[in-house]
Amino acid sequence: MEYAVALIVLLCLVGLVVMRPLLAGAPESPDGGAREELEAAKEAKYREIRDAELDVQMGKLSKEDHRSIDRELRGEAIEILERLDRLDGRAPDS
């Protein structure tokens, strides 16, 4: 008896929480989380650039290798920045 009542109450509670997004219909944020994803990607890219810099300072990456890796990484970072700005509705900096 106790078991049945508890089960029904618990399932109703779970149902309430779980069904809300289905009834509300619209996803949580208008840009679908693209901004957070881009910000995270930006941070990751910055970290990679810094890491490569530290590597070349410590002599673990040759100057030539660093130049090409750095160029590539900065290119990717700039692309992320552009997409972020586009998300803000701004024209990318020229």
Partner: peptide, 10 residues
Amino acid sequence: AAFVISGRRA
């Protein structure tokens, strides 16, 4: 997306 959110909430 609503179902994905619902699954996460579960």
